[in-house]
Amino acid sequence: MPFTLLFVAVLGLLPTFLEAPAAALPAPFAWPVTPAQVTRRFDLPPQRWLPGHRGVDLGAPPGAVVRSAGAGRVSFVGVVAGVGVVSVSHAGGLRTTYQPVAASVAVGDQVATGDQLGLLDGGHPGCSETACLHWGLLRGRVYLDPLALLGLGRVRLLPLDGAQRSVQR
């Protein structure tokens, strides 16, 4: 089979990053801080217990408004390990997380894309800027690249036969 046809066939079979048809994805999503400056990308470790970076760090000034990346319901507001965290549950089983945030919302609040969740606190460890928002995305207990919500995530093609193979990074 010529490469072009194989490539088209693979694209036709390739599920979205969320393993759901594109029509089932909630939309639209937007940056949670603006202007957005990615200072550290998503880096999922090969095993759940290994170190990695299960979100994206977005540089912004302390006190910047943190907004919901998509419409949903606030499912968590609290402090985890001394850091303010807000989580929003979205359609399709997705959940976005935001930290460190001084929350201005409460659990159960309905939010639209762009609604204010709180203000960015400074002091995120590993941040190369004065402050960074750590923005995460989960489906159930599986971490996903939140940049994929904006069409900016990294794509990895997997073998059609489903065989496990080592992945070069």
Rank of each mutant, 00 (worst) to 15 (best):
W31V: 04
P32K: 09
V33I: 14
P35N: 14
P35E: 14
T39D: 12
F42H: 00
D43L: 01
D43G: 06
L44I: 06
L44R: 15
P45N: 11
P45D: 09
Q47S: 14
R48S: 15
G52R: 10
H53P: 01
R54A: 00
V56K: 05
L58V: 04
L58S: 05
P62L: 05
G63P: 10
A64V: 02
A64E: 08
V66E: 07
R67N: 03
S68M: 08
A71H: 06
G72Y: 08
R73N: 02
S75C: 13
V77Y: 07
V77W: 09
V80W: 00
A81R: 12
G82N: 05
V83I: 11
V88I: 12
S89R: 14
A91I: 13
G92T: 08
G92E: 02
G93I: 10
L94Q: 08
R95G: 03
T97S: 15
T97P: 00
Y98S: 02
Y98F: 13
Q99A: 14
A102E: 15
A106W: 09
A106K: 15
V107A: 14
D109H: 11
D109S: 11
Q110D: 14
V111A: 05
A112G: 13
T113P: 09
T113W: 01
T113F: 03
Q116A: 15
Q116I: 09
L117S: 07
L119E: 12
L120Q: 06
L120P: 01
G123T: 08
C127K: 07
A131R: 02
L133H: 08
H134M: 01
W135D: 08
W135G: 03
W135V: 01
L137D: 10
L138N: 13
R139E: 12
V142W: 15
